[in-house]
Design a protein around this nucleic acid. Structure first.
Length: 115
DNA sequence: CGATTGACGTACG
DNA sequence: TCGTACGCCAATC
C-alpha cells in the first residue's frame, strides 16, 4: 500500500463518491461531506469540488447537495437557477423559496446513513 | 507575487 | 439570537 496523503484530488474523489451515493429524494450538506471525509472546515473545498462535478463521469447529482441551512446556494451554477429546484422537486423534494422543505427530515448524512 | 473571491461552516462575543 | 471573525485552499484579478 502507499501512503494515503490527504491530497485535494483524493478529497475531490471522495466528495464525488459520497454525492453519487446520495439516494433520490434525499439531500446532504457540504459540511456533512467535508466532515465525513475528515475536513469539516474544508466545506468550501466541497463546494469548489462540485464546481468541477459537471466534468466528472458519471455525472454527480450536485442538486442534492445544499448548504447547512438547506438553502440552494449553488443553484446559480446550474444551467438555470430553476433547474436545481426542479430536479429536487422531481425527486419528491419540496423546495420553497430556494429552501428545502423538511430539510431536516430529508437530510442524508453519510456518517450516519452510509456508515 | 499579493489581494480578493467563493456552491460553507464553526467559533466567539 | 444575531453579527462578526476566522479557517480552508484553490482560482481569479
Amino acid at each position: 500500500m502507499k501512503d494515503e496523503k490527504p491530497t485535494l484530488d483524493h478529497f475531490f474523489a471522495q466528495v464525488y463518491a459520497v454525492v453519487r451515493l446520495v439516494p433520490p429524494g434525499r439531500v446532504t450538506s457540504y459540511g456533512a461531506i467535508a466532515k465525513y471525509i475528515g475536513s469539516a472546515r474544508s466545506s468550501r473545498m466541497v463546494g469548489w469540488a462540485m464546481n468541477g462535478s459537471h466534468a466528472v463521469k458519471p455525472k454527480v447529482p450536485a442538486h442534492r447537495v445544499v448548504n447547512r441551512n438547506g438553502l440552494l446556494t449553488g443553484k446559480h451554477h446550474f444551467a438555470t437557477e430553476h433547474d436545481m429546484q426542479r430536479l429536487l422537486e422531481k425527486e419528491n423534494v419540496i423546495v420553497k423559496d430556494d429552501q428545502v422543505v423538511e430539510f431536516k427530515r430529508l437530510f442524508w448524512d453519510p456518517s450516519t446513513e452510509l456508515l
